[in-house]
Lab assay of single mutants.
Amino acid sequence: KWTITVQGEEAIKWAIKVAEARNLDYTVHIDGDQAHITIE
């Protein structure tokens, strides 16, 4: 299990796209213009 933090709307969209493309189980916690994405 690991967490990445991305900043900015484009980076958030990209990170989610990558997680979905790899069929990963993930949760997103949005904090202002940052998102913390935890991959199970």
Rank of each mutant, 00 (worst) to 15 (best):
K17I: 11
A15Y: 13
A19R: 00
A35N: 03
K13T: 06
D25N: 14
Q7H: 12
D31F: 11
T38W: 06
K1V: 11
A19F: 14
I37W: 01
D31S: 09
I4Y: 10
I4P: 00
Y26W: 08
A21C: 13
Q7Y: 14
Q34M: 14
E20W: 04
I30G: 03
W2F: 11
E40K: 12
N23M: 08
E40G: 11
K13W: 10
H29T: 13
A21F: 11
G32H: 05
A21T: 11
E10G: 07
R22L: 15
T27S: 10
H36P: 01
I30A: 04
A11G: 07
Q34L: 15
I12K: 04
Q34V: 15
W2A: 03
A11P: 02
D31Q: 10
Y26H: 02
Q7N: 09
H29F: 13
I12Y: 07
V28K: 01
D25Y: 13
H36N: 05
L24A: 07
Y26R: 00
T38Y: 08
E20D: 09
A11D: 05
V28H: 02
A11I: 04
I39E: 00
V18N: 09
E20I: 12
H29D: 09
E9T: 11
E20Q: 08
W14E: 09
K13G: 06
E40P: 05
E40M: 14
W14R: 08
T5Q: 07
Q34G: 09
T3M: 09
I30E: 03
W14Y: 08
D33R: 05
I39L: 10
I37E: 00
Q7L: 11
T3L: 09
W14T: 06
V6F: 06
D31V: 13
L24E: 05
T27N: 06
T27P: 01
R22A: 15
D25A: 14
I4T: 02
R22E: 14
D31C: 11
E10T: 10
N23T: 03
E40S: 13
D25T: 14
D31G: 03
K1W: 09
W2D: 01
H29M: 13
A15Q: 03
E10H: 09
Q34E: 08
V28D: 00
I16S: 01
K1H: 07
I39S: 02
E9H: 12
H29W: 13
W2R: 04
V6C: 06
A19W: 04
Q7E: 08
K1A: 10
Q7S: 12
R22W: 15
V18A: 11
I16A: 01
W14S: 06
H29A: 10
E20T: 10
T38Q: 05
I37A: 01
V18H: 11
G8H: 03
V28S: 02
I39M: 08
L24T: 03
N23G: 15
T5A: 05
Q7R: 13
K17E: 13
W2M: 05
T3K: 07
D33T: 10
Q7G: 04
Q34R: 13
K17A: 15
N23E: 11
Y26N: 00
Y26I: 10
V28Y: 04
A19V: 14
T3V: 13
I37H: 00
E10Y: 07
T38S: 06
H36I: 15
A21H: 10
Y26V: 05
N23K: 12
A11N: 12
